[in-house]
Design a protein around this nucleic acid. Structure first.
Length: 595
RNA sequence: GAUCCCAUAGCUCAGCUGGAUAGAGCAACGGUUUUCUAAACCGUAGGCCUUUGGUUCGAAUCCAAAUGGGAUCACCA
């Protein structure tokens, strides 16, 4: 049983014994560093029971806990705050109990709930950009966190591989591509396709202005520009299964997938199941039938189907066109049900940007209204846009930060910095390349994940991502210090791996602080899992690394003359290193052994 | 017009379910290396937590309104 639980139980007991009263839940907080103690109990809530002043109440409880809880060696009272001091031996025993045990259990309980995390969901008409990077990193990290918290996680990706936007790239390539391929051009497939998407848009825009010069309204110009008419025809042919159009579609999508594969690999993300919208876009009509039968959905005179959400403060939402064809919402209803039927998930998380908050609110509400029990487990993991200093990214205007470019840039910067610091002398070329990638990608991932997902974030490409301060390289650096010490100690034969910690060690204040930090790993993981928030893990691991850095600076380890103390500090440092490594893994960040 | 999200140091961000004197990093200024990796450590300076009301023993945190910023509100995806 952990110390907080013991304290909570004993406090309840105390309230009963002293004041004959009861309180439902009692929670302790970490003592503010300005005061002496490890845990603090705020007693204001108990004054009604004690009918005494805050100080007296705190003293009563403090005395009770000190005499009745072996782990409590001292306490002090400041106003209504009872600060409790936990014995060093408790913390030592705790540290011993986690020695050489993984922070994250690799085994799942047999009855682990299934959680699906859907993320990435790219379009196949253009390459990935910075917004997708945030999406991928978030989704992957949340999946890792949920897995570590004891869930059976299924990572899924739904590829938006059909529709009018894909036809744009296809038509442009057909018209102006001269048979260009990734091989002939040397371009990555997704970039090549994206190039034609941009050129379509450029030509389309100039046609619109031509039409407007001829006196058309904005709306008519957009609808009647020759390219738009051709696109519509192409989409129709695609839907009818025209073999030429389908062949072109397949060829170009395959180029894109090959490109995405490279980007995903570089990002270090992967998927257990990939769905394609071309296979699922017709789903959902059976749900409509059920909904009509139960009266939740209604049919208009023109035969279109809708749901009235005005009572919930939302609008009327159309779910089926008057011609009977389905809409974005229709297919999302269908795919959600398909997911449930295939996976029987407890929770399904959609990692999608906050511009779709409304869509997901409606989607989840409709499924609940339709009476699906599993709809309670749906959750939209919404994240803010990544903004550039001069406004938001627009792919059509070319003001995007391309994901591949960004990653390459990060790795280059990592290489330059590493060389500048003279850290590559003992590394082979392959090792050095690997290190640059680890550092560069780690810095990028940490930079993005440390920000609360729901907030929009600013990315300034001119100021490349920092490597000092609250960054992944700083955290890695502290891990590397631990590993270097352990290597040296092992080589010198002074590291006793079996005899962990002897009892008579006096722990330093900083050591105690760090042990308490290690102790909070599990509660942090739980919070991160409940809140789907990698940022909590990022903050945790930074605090841990920062405190360790201070400790490392002030406290000799290998230079310590007392062998027992040296061995303790080695084990202690190793455990910190393990915690750093595990935390970083939850963020999808690898740590190097040297840097 | 309606709905949703955001507002904390010059800049980028923490601050969990309300708790004691609001924290980091960057930038600025000063210091630390014969000592386990200085991508480090220490110090100085920098705040009406957007504003106004309310709830409370206690509010950056909860509620309401205002202001500013962003997003969304198609028989598009």
């Amino acid at each position: 049983m952990n110390i907080e639980q013991i304290l909570a139980d004993k406090t309840k007991e105390a309230l009963n014994a002293l004041y004959n009263g009861e309180v439902a839940t009692i929670s302790f907080e970490k003592t503010n560093p300005l005061f002496i103690g490890d845990f603090t109990l705020v007693v204001f809530n108990f004054l009604k029971l004690s009918k005494k002043k805050p100080e007296e109440t705190a003293n009563d409880l403090g005395n009770y806990l000190k005499t009745n809880v072996a782990e409590i060696v001292d306490f002090n009272v400041v106003k209504g705050f009872l600060n409790l001091v936990v014995s060093d031996s408790y913390w030592l025993t705790y540290l011993k109990s986690i020695q050489n045990k993984p922070f994250i259990s690799s085994e799942l309980p047999a009855d682990a709930p299934v959680v699906m995390v859907e993320y990435s969901s790219p379009n196949t008409n253009k390459p990935l950009h910075l917004g997708h990077v945030r999406n991928n990193l978030l989704g992957y990290s949340v999946a890792e966190i949920l897995k570590a918290a004891g869930n059976k996680v299924v990572k899924t990706n739904i590829v938006n591989d059909r529709g009018i936007h894909i036809c744009k790239s296809m038509l442009a390539w057909q018209k102006w591509g001269n048979g260009e391929t990734p091989e002939s051009s040397g371009m990555k497939g997704d970039h090549l396709v994206g190039k034609y998407y941009v050129s379509f848009d450029k030509n389309y825009k100039s046609q619109i202005s031509d039409c407007k010069l001829k006196g058309m309204s904005d709306e008519d110009a957009e609808k009647n520009a020759p390219l738009m008419l051709e696109i519509k025809e192409m989409l129709l042919k695609w839907e009818q299964g025209d073999s030429d159009v389908r062949a072109l579609w397949k060829m170009m999508n395959d180029w894109v997938y090959k490109g995405f594969e490279v980007s995903y690999k570089m990002m270090g993300v992967d998927f257990d199941k990939t769905y394609y919208e071309s296979n699922t876009y017709l789903l959902g009509k059976n749900i409509i039938d059920d909904g009509l039968a139960s009266g939740v959905l209604k049919r208009r005179e023109d035969n279109s189907v809708y749901i009235d959400l005005t009572a919930d403060g939302l609008d009327e939402k159309t779910l089926l066109r008057s011609d009977g064809t389905s809409l974005y919402m229709t297919q999302d209803l269908g795919t959600a049900r398909q997911r449930y039927e295939e996976n029987k998930f407890e929770i399904l998380i959609f990692t999608v940007g906050n511009e779709q908050d409304y869509h997901f609110k409606v989607l989840i509400l409709i499924l609940n209204k339709l009476g699906y029990d599993w709809a309670k487990g749906l959750h939209h993991l919404s994240y803010g846009m990544v903004e550039l200093p001069d406004g938001k990214m627009k792919s059509r205007e070319g003001t995007v930060v391309d994901a591949d470019d960004l990653m390459e840039e990060m790795i280059k910067t990592a290489a330059a910095t590493t060389k500048e610091l003279g850290k590559v002398e003992h590394l082979s070329v392959e090792e050095a390349e690997k290190l640059y990638k680890t550092i560069g990608m780690g810095a990028l991932k940490y930079f993005i994940l440390k920000v609360d997902p729901k907030k929009k974030m600013l990315f300034n490409p001119a100021e490349s991502i920092d490597f000092n301060g609250n960054t992944a390289p700083f955290i890695m650096f502290n891990y590397v210090r631990v590993r270097a010490m352990l290597r040296k100690a092992t080589d010198a034969g002074v590291y006793d791996e079996k005899n962990l910690i002897s009892e008579d060690i006096t722990i330093l204040p900083k050591e105690k602080e760090l042990i308490i930090k290690l102790y909070s790993f599990n509660s942090t993981l739980k919070e991160a899992a409940n809140g789907f928030s990698p940022a909590l893990i990022a903050n945790y691991v930074y605090d841990l690394a920062k405190e360790f850095s201070q400790y490392y600076h002030d406290t000799p380890v290998l230079k310590e003359e007392n062998k027992a103390i040296m061995n303790f500090r080695l084990h202690f440092s190793k455990t910190i290193g393990d915690a750093i490594n595990s935390s970083m893994k939850l963020l999808g960040i690898e740590v190097p052994e040297r840097m």
